[in-house]
Design a binder for these strands. Structure first.
Length: 467
DNA sequence: TTAGGGTTAG
């Protein structure tokens, strides 16, 4: 189609045309082919195609978003020898984030140092890398090491990520220390910093401290608490069982003109309402939302799905919510499905859960590692080890591994059933995805080794050790 | 797509 256009225009297909074609092409693999072979470039007499930086930018962004990493890396290599304006750091950030979302921390680190991008790095790509590593659950000390090695002066954003990493690794003390350090270095905390600190304190159950921080941001830093701060506090109160206090906080928000209630605030309350058995009042909350012009998003629907599954133990009602959200133009996300899968498994309905997981790709939402782990655990809990084994095969094929706990229960269950051949094959597969604790498999394996009918296991043991 | 909340699991 594209080549026809330029032939009709009687002009050479330039990088300008290529950029337009890349923008139009929805299929990233097709866009990659277009980039490699621009129309007209194959004619023997023609000079090499002259790419513009925009073409590189477009194709790299597209491939990054589609997680077509080998293709993306090959373009990055070409970009390295590209003689033209140097690419912007924003593009590098996109590449790093894509690796972070794919949970590939080593690749994210390599990208940060990629020679296609001109030195020096600014704090912007440093922060992107830190955020990517945080998403990969890298420990705080790794993040601190990255900061030290980069030698880039941190900003408030850097500290916000580090504080969140400290809280995620369970150390409020470290988070506090980082906050103090940032003050010492003359970096002013922002409303985001306070949002992070309040959330960390609430998650740790330190509500009094969290409220103190809310006061302090006003009195000492002249910053107003926003909906993020309120949502964290409301969730913290609900978890302590003080739903009424959470409602009072919502009323406090309503009294402040500068504060806008949003869907997160309602999702928090909806979930809490279900937990305390006030599901009848949820409809009222939804209507109130509507009245304020707040559109229910995935998070709100997911809170309802969780409520119907966990509290009402009524998966059909949860399925109805799923249908409803799709009708209302809100595409169910992986969390919606995983919540349902968890609910079905908890009710022992692993067959229904299995059907739902199988149906997810058709519904436009491929299962993730959590979907598989929950289904696997649900089958193990039901004593359905052969079914669990099938799921395990599919998981391993897709590069996912079961949780350590799930793998342990699975191995113990198969041990109890005494199927040595199955146990052997299972241990090898688990070892391949590194889902075995050494003590766990050693114990299980030694049990089988005592069995003289199972001589081939030693061979597999060696392969496990090498892996 | 430089940072924070809210819905699942662990």
């Amino acid at each position: 189609m594209t080549s026809n256009c330029h032939a009709m225009a009687g002009k050479k297909f330039s990088s300008y045309h290529l950029a337009a074609a890349l923008r139009r092409e929805p299929d990233p693999a097709a866009a990659f082919q277009l980039f490699l072979n621009p129309p007209g470039s194959a004619t023997p007499s023609s000079a090499p195609f002259r790419y513009s930086l925009l073409c590189y930018d477009l194709i790299i962004s597209k491939l990054a978003a589609a997680r077509l990493f080998p293709a993306m890396e090959s373009v990055l290599s070409r970009l390295r020898s590209y003689l033209g304006p140097r690419p912007r750091e924003q593009l590098l950030c996109r590449v790093i984030s894509a690796y972070g979302r794919a949970r590939l921390p080593a690749a994210a680190r390599r990208a940060f140092a990629h020679p296609a991008f001109p030195e020096p790095r600014t704090v912007r790509s440093l922060n992107t890398l830190l955020h990517a590593l945080l998403g990969c659950r890298a420990p705080l000390r790794d993040l601190l090491a990255v900061c030290r090695d980069a030698g880039i002066p941190p900003d408030a954003c850097t500290y916000n990520i580090l504080i969140r990493a400290a809280a995620a690794s369970g150390s409020i003390e470290h988070a506090r220390h980082l906050f103090d350090e940032m003050l010492c270095r003359g970096i002013a905390p922002t409303v985001v910093t306070f949002g992070t600190v309040v959330a960390a304190l609430c998650n740790a159950g330190q509500l009094e401290d969290a409220f103190e921080v809310k006061q302090m941001m006003v009195s000492q830093y002249d910053l107003l608490p926003n909906a993020y701060v309120y949502a964290s506090l409301m969730k913290g109160l609900c978890e302590k069982g003080d739903v009424d206090a959470a409602v009072r906080l919502k009323e406090e928000m309503e009294g402040k003109a500068e504060l806008v209630l949003d869907s997160a605030v309602y999702a928090t309350l909806i979930r809490a309402w279900f937990r305390v058995g006030r599901k009848g009042e949820v409809v009222g909350l939804l209507e109130e939302m509507k009245g304020r012009g707040i559109v229910a998003n995935c998070v709100v629907y997911n809170a309802m799905i969780a409520g119907f599954c966990e509290d009402v133990r009524d998966p059909s009602a949860a399925f109805a919510v799923l249908d409803n959200m799709n009708k209302n133009g809100c595409k169910a996300d992986v969390l919606s499905y995983n919540t349902l899968v968890a609910g079905l498994c908890k009710l022992g309905r692993w067959r229904d859960a299995s059907e739902l997981v199988e149906d997810m790709p058709r519904r436009g939402c491929p299962p993730d590692v959590v979907s598989y782990r929950m289904l696997f655990d649900g089958m193990c809990a039901a004593g359905e080890f052969l079914e669990a084994d099938k799921v395990l095969g599919e998981m391993v094929f897709k590069g996912f591994s079961p949780s350590k706990d799930g793998a342990r229960k699975f191995v113990q269950g198969i041990e109890r059933e005494g199927d040595a051949a199955l146990l052997e094959s299972v241990l090898c597969r688990l070892a391949r995805v590194n889902a075995l604790e050494s003590s766990g498999w050693e114990k299980a394996v030694s049990g089988v080794l005592d069995d003289p009918t199972e001589p081939s296991l030693e061979k597999h043991l060696d392969s496990i050790r090498i892996a």
